[in-house]
């Protein structure tokens, strides 16, 4: 098999005092794909994310990025290699302006981040680039607002713009549509689709509707271990997945459940109907 893998984990294990949160996970993320990591609450999805970006150190196992072992690197170095993550709660800088949020990401590659003797106006040359990124996510009109004042959905869009500013090879999105209303969910899903051109995305996502729309490949986690892997059709047809998610076996009919779009809602209708 000649797969072009951008990120690979080998026998990744994370144990917290007798509890194995991530159990022997072998992930293979193919370059240029959108890969979704799904699973019920507590399956270890976010822990896997934290391991991949070294916000947590794995108990054992290793991480390979473009074939190179990056297991020993600290978080900031991993980000510098081109693996940039987002967070479950919106990760913005609330008291900076929207423009400044993006600019602080662009600034890193400028090499003047330690220049305390220069006036900050030297950063103005990044404004055009920053505006362009804001434009991409539909935030042009908010550029000079305080980020604190943005509605939630816009903050998530800003987060994506900030991440894109680093031009990452691999974007890790942790529940990008969490806590959003239906309209915002579609906006962000379309945005992710658009920015996926030319890069790889690994996302944790609860909303199966979004997953079905975006993901080329899906890995299902359950109790820290990989349950199954494949495209949406094969994963959603797997009786074990249906059981893990819905607590029903395959031969029981799935009642259409209407749920409000809460933080952990699962779009059951879309999930079962595909």
């Amino acid at each position: 098999m000649t797969q072009d893998l951008i990120l690979e984990t080998k026998n990744l294990i994370k144990a917290f005092k007798g509890f194995t949160a991530v159990d022997d996970v072998n992930l293979q993320i193919e370059r240029g794909s959108i890969h979704a990591l799904i699973g019920p609450n507590g399956a270890g999805k976010t822990t896997v994310f934290n391991l991949l970006t070294k916000y947590l150190a794995p108990t054992s196992g290793c991480l390979l990025f473009n074939g190179k072992d990056i297991t020993a690197l600290p978080s900031a170095s991993i980000a510098r290699l081109g693996i940039v993550r987002s967070f479950q709660i919106s990760a913005v800088f609330p008291n900076l302006s929207v423009l400044e949020n993006v600019r602080v990401a662009l600034q890193r590659k400028e090499g003047n981040s330690f220049h305390f003797w220069k006036h900050e106006r030297v950063l103005n040359r990044l404004n055009d680039k920053a505006m362009q990124l804001l434009d991409d996510v539909g935030l042009t009109g908010f550029a000079h607002s305080k980020t604190l004042d943005l509605p939630y959905g816009r903050k998530r869009a800003l987060e994506i713009a900030t991440t894109l500013a680093l031009d990452p090879e691999l974007m890790l999105l942790d529940e990008p549509t969490q806590g959003m209303g239906h309209e915002d969910v579609d906006v962000v899903a379309n945005l992710i689709k658009r920015v996926s051109a030319g890069r790889t995305i690994l996302m944790v996502e609860h909303n199966l509707h979004v997953v079905s729309k975006l993901a080329d490949r899906i890995t299902v986690l359950q109790r820290g271990a990989i349950l199954t892997e494949g495209d949406y059709a094969s994963v959603s047809a797997d009786p074990r997945v249906r059981e893990a998610y819905l607590g029903v076996s395959d031969d029981e009919p799935v009642a259409p459940v209407v749920q409000p779009a809460g933080p952990h809602s699962i779009d059951v209708a879309a999930g079962a109907g595909a």
């Binding site: 980000a79 940039v84 900076l96 600034q107 890193r108 305390f116």
Partner: peptide, 30 residues
Amino acid sequence: RTVHSPFGQVLKAIRENEPRAISLGYNVND
């Protein structure tokens, strides 16, 4: 000047949201 410098911007970002600053590739301790 330090507060209103490129360095000051990063410092503010770190104060505002340290994990995010790390995820942008800043070695915040430095």
